[in-house]
Every structure is written in C-alpha cells, then in structure tokens.
Amino acid sequence: MKRLILTALLGAALASPAWADAVASLRQFVQEVKSGRATFTQTVSSPDGARKRSTEGRFEFVRPNRFRFDYAPPMAQHIVADGQKVWLHDPDLDQVTVRAMGDALGATPAALLAGGSLDKDFTLKALPDRDGLQWAEALPKARDSQFQAVRVGFRGKDLAALEIVDSFGQVSVLSMRQFEANVSLAPERFRFTPPPGADVLEQ
C-alpha cells in the first residue's frame, strides 16, 4: 500500500511541472522575446460554438508597444501600433480609426505581445496540456476589460496559439505558423499613413 501511495505521489510530482512550465514559458517569452513574426489562422466562434468564421493573417511585433496585424481578404484589415497610437484600417469601408496607445492597449491580449506588465495587469494560471501544447491563462485584473480571458499556448518555447474569450463569450483562436523570435524588423513596418481620401476617426 505504501509503495502504491509513493508511486502515486511521485507520478503527481513528475506530472505537475508540465502544467507549471506554461506560466514560466509565458514569463520567459515576455522577458526574452523582443521581436517576432508569424502567419496565423484566426477562427472566431459564437458563444454557443454553433457559428464559426476563419481568416488568414500575419503579425509582427517589436517591444515595446509596436505591433502589426494584417488580415487577408475577404476580411482585410490592418492594425498597426507605432508606440504612440493604434491605427485600425478597414479597406472595404475606406476608414481608419485611431486611438491613443494607452487607451487601446491596457490589459488586452495585444499587451502580452507588446510588452505589458504581466503581474500588474493579469492574474496568471497554468492549464492542463491540450492539443500538444502547454497552456497558460491570463485573466485581466481590470473590471472593465473587454475580454474575459486569454489563453496562450506554447510548443516548447515557441508561441503556438492564442485563445481570446471576449466579454460576450465569443472565442477567437489564433493558430500560429512559422513563428520566428528575435528577428530584425524594419521600423517602417510599424508606421502607418492613412490612404488618401480615407475617413479618419480619432477616438
């Protein structure tokens, strides 16, 4: 009986670090990965999971506070953070929305990429491994956050997935491909000039 108990305890001790490593991987990612880029597929599901839509895209970031998301047609959209402002360009509407970085970023999923303060803005928790990935969950501390949780999936030390649950229960999953860490990215990638004739809305 003692041997069985010891075996069970040893098994639990050996198994638990796999979960805990996900939070360590997230902390290490924020501390050590100063830039990165990847292509992704984003799937958005309704709260009941009945409706889904997918789109392809590419993202790049450089710490601190510079990132870029480019979504491919037919849902083309460009989101560019230049360190001071966040620009959202909708080509179909020929419209650009501009917000100050502090107002747009805060405790958002983008803050995980752009260099936000993990412990200041989020409560971190390790989750069980799933789909061959290690998962960490970040819960926003701000009461007025527009999302409930963001779950970050790692394959080894590489960022592999983001799951974002918004305040309405809608789930967005970004599955990363070809993630490259600490790459050299041209500064102009994080500058945005509104196209001629586009409506520019400042918020």
Results as ranks from 00 to 15, higher is better:
Pro64Gly: 00
Ser172Leu: 08
Phe59Leu: 15
Val86Gln: 03
Leu113Glu: 00
Asn182Thr: 07
Gly169Arg: 12
Ser145Tyr: 09
Gln77Trp: 12
His89Gly: 00
Ala160Asp: 01
Gln77Phe: 10
Asp129Ala: 15
Phe122Met: 10
Arg151His: 09
Ala104Arg: 10
Ala186Leu: 14
Ser167Arg: 15
Glu56Gln: 15
Gln134Cys: 02
Ala126Pro: 10
Ala138His: 00
Gln170His: 04
Asp90Val: 07
His89Pro: 10
Asp121Glu: 12
Ala72His: 09
Arg155Ser: 14
Asp166Gln: 13
Arg130Gln: 14
Ile164Gln: 03
Lys141Leu: 08
Gly132Lys: 04
Val171Arg: 15
Val150Trp: 02
Gln146Arg: 13
Gln170Phe: 09
Gln95Tyr: 06
Leu105Tyr: 04
Leu162Ala: 03
Arg58Gly: 07
Trp135Leu: 06
Arg177Lys: 14
Phe69Tyr: 14
Phe122Asn: 02
Phe59Trp: 06
Ser172Ile: 11
Asp82Ile: 06
Pro128Leu: 01
Lys141Gln: 12
Asp131Gly: 10
Glu137Pro: 10
Thr97Ala: 08
Leu112Lys: 02
Asp166Ile: 09
Pro128Phe: 01
Phe192Leu: 09
Lys125Leu: 05
Gln84Gly: 13
Gly132Gln: 04
Glu163Gly: 02
Gly106Asn: 10
Arg177Met: 11
Gly106Met: 05
Lys120Glu: 13
Asp92Phe: 03
Ala100Phe: 11
Ala160Asn: 03
Asp92Leu: 09
Ala186Met: 10
Ala100Lys: 13
Gly115Leu: 01
Arg68Phe: 02
Gln77Asp: 04
Ser167His: 11
Arg130Ala: 12
Ala107Pro: 11
Glu163His: 07
Trp135His: 04
Lys141Arg: 15
Phe147Tyr: 11
Arg66Val: 02
Phe192Arg: 05
Pro140Trp: 04
Gly106Asp: 01
Asp70Cys: 01
Met101Asp: 00
Pro128His: 02
Asp82Met: 07
Trp87Ala: 02
Phe69Trp: 15
Ile79Met: 12
Gly132Val: 09
Asp70Ala: 12
Arg143Leu: 13
Phe69Asp: 00
Val86Asp: 04
Pro194Glu: 04
Asp131Leu: 14
Ala136Asn: 05
Arg151Gln: 15
His78Leu: 15
Ser145Asp: 09
Ala186His: 10
Ala81Gly: 08
Phe154Thr: 00
Gln148Ala: 14
Arg99Lys: 15
Ala110Tyr: 10
Leu93His: 08
Asn182Pro: 06
Gly156Pro: 08
Val152Phe: 01
Arg155Glu: 13
Pro140Ile: 05
Glu137Gln: 15
Leu159Asp: 07
Asp144Glu: 11
Pro73Met: 04
Asp129Thr: 11
Arg68Asp: 00
Leu112Phe: 03
Pro109Met: 05
Pro109Asn: 05
Arg177Thr: 13
Ser172Asn: 11
Ala104Ile: 09
Pro187Trp: 10
Gly57Ile: 00
Arg143His: 12
Ala126Ile: 06
Pro140Leu: 03
Ala110Arg: 06
Phe154Ala: 01
Asn65Trp: 08
Glu163Asn: 08
